[in-house]
Design a protein around this nucleic acid. Structure first.
Length: 797
RNA sequence: GCGGGCGUGGUGGAAUGGCAGACACGCUAGUCUUAGGAACUAGUGGGUAACCGUGCAGGUUCAAGUCCUGUCGCCCGCACCA
């Protein structure tokens, strides 16, 4: 018994389109609910089976919320700027705009075929000038506030993409996207000062309902640490400023290390300058990856002719240059306390430097003792006898009083490299003028359109392809009117996605990125689901932009997303990541054509714990198809005279409760299991009433919307199912009158019996003793336990 | 190295400290069929049994998959951030 899913699914998708069934209203008296999934990058490969896992889950949430009376916004759009499209365009000699158009059409067809309840009237596209006008507008606001600045700096350069990458886009020393080697290259780049928001981005995480993994990852990435900056006098008659998180160990600082790029190297009169400069040279040649490789041995050179003075011991200590100290963090210089820092310990062993224990409790003969929680200060003058925590407080006071050091907070977070030397991105709306410097375009000149050209291939000199378009590049200064040149770098892929959720609130607004009223009504996003891979990229960037927009009064909330969840990956049948090269890719088109959209949706939800990865199974999916076939069959066993079964009534109420709870908690797999159980019970009973069927259809609707709409109509219910009301359960009807309990002796099950749910503890135990009379014969009862509705346990010897 | 998570049948996976294996897949047998890669029915952790079973070894508890300690394995995050 198999229903005609092809005909049914097409029919309902058309009806939903015609009736604008899922249109969100900006003026509604209903409570709002904003459900969001990450809009896809429309790649040439088309939809991956991973996309619908996220989209289906929030589609279920959105559909349920609508049935519960909410005005739901569940939008979709296209994050369409980016490298893969551009690379494909170059290879195939088709303009990226054409490629994008084609890919979007394909994606849209695939999303429609899966029956998602997106409000397509709000569809957006980051490559649409009407959209990126506002991306550029936000950039200009950042520029005005000094948060966008240009900087000559060493950047990550992908040798294959011929493009700058953000730190977040470099994974294990290679390009996140293409896997090619990433080298350092000094270039002048647009930067966004995300570091100004480090503290807010960190602190405001506390109030958000994000899954822990996401919060932890963002906290790690921001990397806040508290410590102190301390000045060390040197024999060169100046002061070397260092940062440390362990000022308590200052007495144990037996040498100093500065980064190879430290400016003092040029300033100091160094006896072995050649050697030091050679070391700097060799460090510069290494890639970031090589430099930070942990496994490698520490290298370094002692700076001869200059010594530092430990401000507490007054002793002269040597200064080394070593690449284990990074110029980009803290002050680019450290005090080395080998007894209590693993890296310093390693270095000291290698260079035979003294190791002085200042915290007792470890064994510094063997290894550095880095524990802050235990241990007592020794060899530390006025700190002796204190705990580490006490010493930290006292030494900070001391440093402050003596004017040699101050408490200091540092972050690992770096500013965001915002320039890309590529064609397929938003042009940066800045003009370079010899007289006026960097001049922003006027708002009225936005959007600055990406010039049409067939000459969009990357250049060999690392300049943007736009630099070849001299007609476009040469312009006049908006300020002084003299000849000037346009910025030719474009924005990174992450620009358009940093604010897209705002545009959905009011997507056709020509005056503002979205109206105040619309933003006030819809924001924040109530539930946002997306991939873990975006935690330190898109998710952090968009929180940054949003906080900025909040500060300048454009958006009404300090945070964009109230709740963030993340789906696990769908792996290939062999348990490996799906990829063309592994040949284990599952094509959604084929699945839908063979089993239908409802089965595909249901299976992706039933596959396992939503947050964990799970392998695809081409046999398991059949179970979901079978289930839907049996659901369709319910209409044949409909019988008004079937009479009310108390058991079924109870199970229906319990299932409503479970499905409601499970959808709210993203436990779609057990919600479906509960519906399967209920269906099994209905078939065991052999018939059901129209009212019972109604509840079942409503509960299943968010999961399998096409089949349930069809059944709704077949059976003769009024109107459309998507306008109906989600069932409520009656707590008093969830409970049983009698319940089977387990009778145990010493925790081992000996018997089972049915008892009334409100049997007293004493009666239950009496009953148990009676039933277990033989087993208990001659034994000494020590303890009797009754757990209501569960068990009686009698402890006897 | 540090931080976090997870180890449950042949498989995917269920289990507010209280009946381990819900729900599926697969498998076995049967029914119907010219046929079955369809549908339906029954069975399905191991063991003949008493019993034994949630990676392994301990512990707490009347009671442990669940809590604690140690250990092994896998996965994820960070990774010379001072």
């Amino acid at each position: 018994m198999s229903y005609d899913f092809k005909q049914i699914e097409k029919k309902w998708q058309d009806i939903w389109d015609e009736t604008e069934a899922f249109k969100a209203e900006n003026n509604s008296s209903k409570p709002k609910y904003y459900a969001l999934v990450e809009f896809p990058y429309p790649s040439g490969q088309g939809l991956h089976v991973g996309h619908p896992r996220s989209y289906t889950a929030l589609d279920i949430v959105a559909r349920k919320k609508r049935l519960e009376g909410y005005n739901v916004l569940y939008p979709m759009g296209w994050d369409a700027f980016g490298l893969p499209t551009e690379n494909y365009a170059i290879k195939a000699h088709i303009h990226p705009e054409e490629v994008t158009k084609k890919n979007i059409a394909n994606f849209k067809r695939q999303l429609k075929m899966l029956g998602f309840s997106f409000d397509w009237s709000r569809e957006i596209n980051t490559t649409d000038p009407e959209y990126y006008k506002w991306t550029q507008w936000i950039f200009l606001r950042l520029f005005e506030k000094g948060l966008a600045y240009k900087k000559e700096m060493a950047v990550n350069w992908c040798t294959s993409c011929k493009c700058v990458l953000a730190n977040e886009e470099v994974v294990n020393g290679v390009c996140e996207r293409c896997g090619s080697e990433v080298i350092r290259k000094v270039k002048s780049q647009w930067m966004l000062k995300i570091t100004d928001y480090a503290e807010k981005l960190l602190k405001d995480l506390d109030g958000l309902d994000f899954i822990d993994r996401v919060k932890t990852q963002q906290r790690n990435w921001i990397g806040r640490s508290t410590g102190a900056e301390v000045k060390f006098k040197t024999t060169a008659n100046d002061e070397l400023l260092i940062y440390t998180t362990r000022p308590d160990t200052l007495f144990g600082a037996t040498y100093m290390v500065i980064a190879p790029e430290h400016p003092f190297i040029d300033k100091w009169n160094i006896e072995n300058k050649d050697e030091v400069l050679a070391y700097r040279e060799s460090a510069a040649r290494k890639s970031d990856f090589e430099r930070t490789e942990v496994a490698k041995e520490k290298t370094g050179v002692e700076i001869k002719g200059v010594k530092a003075i430990n401000p507490l011991t007054g002793k002269e200590i040597p200064i080394f240059v070593s690449d284990y100290v990074l110029i980009s963090y803290g002050t680019g210089a450290i005090m080395a306390v080998p007894a209590h820092d693993t890296r310093d310990y390693e270095f000291a062993k290698q260079f035979n430097l003294p190791i002085v224990e200042v915290v007792a409790g470890g064994n510094i003969e063997k290894e550095a003792f880095t524990d802050c929680a235990t241990g007592t200060m020794v060899n530390s003058g006025f700190l002796n006898g204190l705990s580490v925590e006490e010493a930290k407080v006292k030494i900070k006071e001391y440093l402050h009083e003596k004017g040699i050091g101050e408490e200091k907070v540092n972050y690992k977070l770096r500013d965001w490299v915002f320039s890309r030397q590529r064609y397929w991105g938003e042009p940066i709306p800045i003009v370079h003028c010899d007289c006026c410097g960097y001049v922003p375009l006027k708002d009225s000149d936005l959007p600055l359109r990406l010039p049409k050209t067939d000459n969009f291939e990357p250049t060999d000199n690392g300049e943007s392809p736009l630099s070849k378009l001299t007609d476009w590049v040469n312009t006049t200064c908006p300020k002084c009117g003299k000849p000037a040149k346009r910025e030719t770098d474009t924005m990174p892929q992450w620009a358009g996605s940093s604010w897209y959720f705002l545009r959905y609130c009011d997507p056709h607004n020509k005056e503002e990125l979205a109206s105040k009223e619309a933003l006030k009504y819809w924001m924040p996003v109530d539930w946002y689901n997306g991939g873990m891979e975006h935690t330190t990229l898109h998710l952090l960037y968009s929180r940054f932009w949003h906080k900025f927009l909040y500060d300048i009064g454009v958006v009404p909330t300090p945070e964009p997303y109230q709740k963030r969840t993340s789906h696990g990956m769908i792996l290939g049948e062999n348990g490996e990541k799906m990829s063309k090269s592994r040949g284990n890719v599952v094509n959604p088109d084929e699945i839908v054509s063979e089993y239908g959209a409802d089965t595909m949706r249901l299976y992706e939800m039933f596959i396992g714990d939503f947050e964990k990865s799970a392998p695809w199974s081409s046999t398991s999916i059949k179970g979901c198809k079978r289930f839907l076939d049996r659901v369709e069959g319910l209409k044949y066993i409909l019988n008004e005279e079937s009479g009310i079964s108390k058991d079924l009534e109870r199970n229906i109420n319990k299932t409503i409760k479970k499905v409601t709870y499970d959808i709210d908690n993203l436990k779609m797999n057990t919600a479906i299991a509960a519906l399967m159980s209920l269906l099994n019970e209905i078939y065991t009973k052999g018939s059901l009433s129209k009212e019972e069927l109604k509840v079942f259809i409503l509960l299943l609707n968010p999961f399998a919307p096409h089949l349930t709409e069809e059944l709704w109509q077949n059976v003769g219910f009024e109107g459309y199912l998507n306008k109906a009301e989600f069932p409520k359960y009656d707590e008093s009807k969830c409970g049983e009158d009698t319940v089977e309990i387990v009778l145990q002796i010493c925790g081992k099950i000996k018997a089972r019996t049915n008892v009334s749910v409100d049997i007293s503890s004493a009666d239950a135990i009496l009953l148990a003793k009676d039933l277990l009379k033989q087993e208990l014969d001659g034994k000494n009862i020590i303890k009797e336990i009754y757990v209501p509705k569960k068990l009686v346990n009698i402890v006897a010897k």
